[in-house]
């Protein structure tokens, strides 16, 4: 893979941009036949999860 492409993939991974695609894969194996959330629903749900269980960060 060329380096720019690799950086882009890394950014996608780290920013959570491709989280939905990964969710679809997990969902199809764990709950086959059940309707998965759509992209918008998934991100709203994920955001809520993240900030309703806040960890912490360094000053």
């Amino acid at each position: 893979m060329n380096p720019l492409r690799a950086i882009w993939e890394y950014l996608k991974e780290i920013s959570g941009e491709n989280a939905y695609d990964k969710y679809l894969v997990v969902h199809s194996t764990t709950h086959p036949g059940r309707r998965p959330m759509n992209r918008g629903e998934f991100y709203r749900w994920r955001q809520n999860e993240k900030y309703n269980n806040p960890g912490s960060r360094c000053p």
Binding site: S15, E17, G40
Partner: peptide
């Protein structure tokens, strides 16, 4: 609302 989840 416009482009859900397009973080980058």
């Amino acid at each position: 609302f416009l482009r859900p989840g397009r973080v980058l």
